[in-house]
Design a binder for these strands. Structure first.
Lengths: 236, 236
DNA sequence: CACCTTATGCCAACACTATTGACCTTTCGT
DNA sequence: ACGAAAGGTCAATAGTGTTGGCATAAGGTG
């Protein structure tokens, strides 16, 4: 057992690196985020990260068990940023909406990172805090426990799933992204009404709509359905 | 220009490999799918694929420009299988539900492959056919065009997003998947009621629920909300 | 202040990876 | 039957994550 990873809290000595940098989990993750932004989602490598930090690549294994562990930490930091400074207002529906949009936005701010981490469960502190907040809103609103868990599950998975999907298209290389966006013009808008009557009928609407995220719409629909269910529950 | 890739249609000579195997795009893609299933989503490497085919790894570059090109071809194949043999029944809500579940299921049948390709937009024929069918169902049900496009967009993106999310967790290496599944037991079920009252209160429900896909729930909520909107539209 | 333990950074090495350019051999149209 | 070139092979390059051993400085203890 050559390299035990010491938890950040239990870390006592802070020996500076050859170049004088003092490492920490937080610094490593923040640097990784910067590298992802600059070099794309395939540009995060242990070697490059080491160089960017001014430390030997192998040093990182004192902080993270492997690159997988590092990506989980990156994901947790994104959730942490989404939740930073959030406070509920008492209106469960507005609060949930705000929370979903915040998480979605936090991921889209770092699309290359989001692609790597959005579909992983980290179980780290920020993620747990978010889950606690969401469940609190639902139970506080009067959802019975079973229903609260159902809605919570749909809400959080939908939010992360959309974050990953939308991030993926933002993370494409400039050239590929433009090609995707112009697909709607080039392909869908030119289909014959004879073979594709429905697409042809709404083509202008499609072109206008498809390059925005559908998340806000889908989120509102989920919340509407939840509210409907809540009313019928209270009626009983 | 050392290695021009010849399109499958224009391919004329079929020289057998040292081991006597005759290559083709189709054979390569099918073999890649098998390897993904057997060795996990990180187990598809040019070297291994070459060995599995009984050919030198570099031979594959005669068929695909790079590994990225190969994954696109794999994705193409999945999309083709998703819609095969579908027919509507006339009940728009049931039909949409069926369609969503089919697409979701088709991806989950090859989770390791889905992970690599799920957040790419193809714009190819099968995808167009699905879009036409969905828009037809919504417009046939009486949604005004603008509303039909909104619901269509939310529906298709949500379906693909969940397919990617759920495929990702199925595609994790056995060890990591068990770790993720046990996270709910190991981490969430042990949080103190003092610090995390809501999670603690519903912990057993979470453990029971979180390892299934939330897609059916989210899909039903989306359809419920759409149906509500449709009723109020018809009332006008 | 000096000492000793040990946490932590560094180095070298390993077994991989994708990709490329040069070479050679088989295939097919003429 | 011949010659062009498609297509398979080989060798090499530059990169990857990861690990074991070593050196050194930090910080508690006397």
């Amino acid at each position: 057992m050559p390299k035990p990873v010491v938890s950040e809290a239990a870390r006592r000595r802070r020996r500076p690196t050859k170049n004088g940098v003092v490492l920490s989990e937080d610094l490593i993750v923040r640097t990784a985020l910067r590298m992802l932004r600059e070099h794309g989602s395939a540009g995060l490598t242990v070697r490059r990260l080491g160089i960017a930090l001014g430390a030997d690549p192998s040093t990182l294994y004192r902080y993270f068990a492997g690159i997988d562990d590092l990506t989980l930490a990156i994901g947790d930091m994104l959730i942490g940023r989404a939740m930073a400074g959030w406070h509920g207002t008492g209106d469960w529906r507005a609060d949930l909406r705000e929370l979903g949009l915040r998480i979605h936005a936090a991921y889209l701010e770092h699309p290359q990172a989001a692609v790597l981490t959005a579909n992983r469960i980290s179980g780290k502190s920020h993620e747990i805090a978010a889950d606690e907040a969401i469940l609190g809103l639902l139970r506080g609103a009067g959802f019975p426990d079973r229903e609260a868990v159902r809605v919570y599950h749909a809400f959080i998975d939908m939010t992360l799933a959309f974050a990953a999907l939308d991030a993926a298209s933002l993370a494409l290389p400039e050239q590929a992204r433009r090609a995707d966006e112009e697909m709607w013009q080039a392909t869908y808008a030119r289909l014959s009404p004879a073979t594709h009557p429905n697409i042809a009928a709404v083509a202008p609407l499609l072109v206008a709509d498809m390059n925005d995220s559908a998340y806000p719409t889908a989120l509102d629909m989920l919340l509407t359905s939840a509210a409907t269910g809540l009313r019928s529950h209270k009626a009983c």
